[in-house]
Design a binder for these strands. Structure first.
Lengths: 139, 139, 139, 139
DNA sequence: GTGGTCTAGACCACA
DNA sequence: GTGGTCTAGACCACG
């Protein structure tokens, strides 16, 4: 797993970390139970403040994606096969989807092209076969 | 055209205004040439400061979606049929799409459901039939 | 002489009129003594308010390029062969030139390309032979 | 780096700041990675409101010339060697160049003098030798 | 009356 | 401490 950040982006670093982890889980690169690096370790690897990593992990915990323990560190709590989405999530997500797809439409991408992009993206989210373990994987 | 805002959202108000206008253009509710309310008028209607509306309109102008004239006020400049997307837009957009779709996947929506949502959303972006007038429509 | 305006431009209309006249004089399309349409005539032709044309003509008068009389209307006062630039003009103009050329440089145009563009533009400013009269030309 | 403003000019202050920065980048006085003063600092130095500086920096950011980080403040993003000009820029720029050069021609500067001025200006845009450091330079 | 600019003060998010 | 947002009031340029 490679975690690429753009320190000069307008998107906050903690948000980028959160986004990359979400994508890794969706792509099956991080399955349920997989361990993430400690905040200090990841901060050192990325050359950023560990408070920033902390904030990202805490955000992921509040979203239900991570379990944080002093002992075991950060562990993935749910993956693509875990269950149905929480109530209320769908509405908010749908609104953001609508905005994002409207942006492309307005910029001249036609409906077919937009849907093709969606299809390609979702197609890239292949859940790993059951047997493949990823625990302890480094970042 | 109804412009619904959430003043308590973490998303900046000017950004919400911008998003709603983009969606309205994508949906064909605002066609090229359609007039938007004046900054001060819209600000009064929404109960916010006119500078905030100003910022939203200015953002839309920079994105090429609005024309701002001292005479005629704010007018839609391009709609869903205007032209091809600018180079470089697709990359950034694709990255944001990937993040958003990963979010839904992680929350338990399977690929089919995600694509169905995309299809429904894009399907809602129907360009109005030629006869439908939208100019001068109030907010 | 064709006077093309963009009513939706961010550049004020009176400024566009002034710019087009300056360019026409530089290109030799309007020589010294040539008559311009009356403010009301030009305003009608362009579909704009005659106060706007008035403002443009007044600006050109203050720049020394037009003579305005109730009787003879607007007449070109000086052209490319009239004389040396007024004192103080060169400094201001040089500063604006510097800004404009810096803009192109920063956007990636190299020095040769910038100078080539300047050469092409200046090359298009051909002063008419003495004999060619343009008085009374319509717009 | 010296940033000279004319508070009584008809040109907006935020525009003047933007112009001076563009020129400094073109002249190589500000290379990629060079740090600019913080908005509040620069505002204090110039005796203006920090919102005005904010607007100038935001404009430069949208033009792709500045990176604005909450951590490191304002940093130059691209300089004269960064890349090719964006499509569509050349047209608009060429029109403005034509107007500006016509102005000088009309005021009595002949073609040779105009081109000489252009040459001198572009000649002043020399990229600094590699060794010259500009980072952290104060205003 | 419209948008644009400048000033001013307060609060928040980020690192 | 940095930039970002929102509010607020005044004045100007444009048509």
């Amino acid at each position: 797993m490679i975690l690429t950040l753009d320190l000069n982006s307008e998107i906050p670093i903690y948000q980028q970390i959160r986004d990359r982890v979400v994508e890794a889980v969706a792509a099956g690169e991080l399955a349920e139970g997989a361990a993430l690096p400690s905040t200090r370790q990841l901060a050192a690897d990325l050359g950023i403040n560990f408070h920033t990593v902390n904030k990202a992990y805490d955000l992921l915990r509040r979203e239900g994606l991570l379990l944080l323990n002093r002992k075991s560190g950060a562990v993935v709590r749910r993956d693509a096969r875990s269950g149905p989405p929480e109530p209320g999530f769908t509405d908010d997500w749908g609104a953001r989807l609508r905005t994002l797809l409207a942006e492309a439409t307005v910029q001249g991408l036609d409906g077919a092209a937009v849907l093709a992009a969606c299809g390609r993206t979702v197609g890239g989210f292949r859940v790993r076969p059951e047997g493949a373990r990823v625990e302890g994987e480094s970042v």
